[in-house]
């Protein structure tokens, strides 16, 4: 469980960008690329080191007019931290 007041940022060496040719957000890293699905792209692009996890969840719920996204966001972030796509900068 990632603390609700943690401010996740993109991991060092990674770059996130929208690729029109793939119609997707992609995560670039040394000699590799991950094509993100829609929800992963929406979460990742909000991880700017400024917003807290709670703020990201609430922003997503507002943007997509829904509720109860916290579990999904937590699940995705746990995986993203594991893969070092995300980090907490001091």
């Amino acid at each position: 469980m990632i603390a609700a007041d943690a401010r996740p940022a993109l991991g060092r060496g990674f770059r996130l960008q929208w690729e029109p040719a793939q119609k997707a957000h992609v995560l670039l890293y040394p000699e590799g690329m991950v094509k993100l699905n829609g929800s992963a792209g929406e979460i990742m692009k909000r991880c700017d080191g400024a917003r807290t996890v709670a703020e990201i969840v609430s922003d997503l719920e507002t943007t997509f007019a829904t509720t109860g996204l916290e579990k999904d966001v937590q699940g995705f972030m746990a995986m993203a931290f594991e893969k070092r796509w995300l980090e907490i900068r001091q």
Partner: peptide, 8 residues
């Protein structure tokens, strides 16, 4: 323009 992303 064709969508290349990784450059060596």
């Amino acid at each position: 323009e064709l969508g290349a992303v990784q450059l060596g």
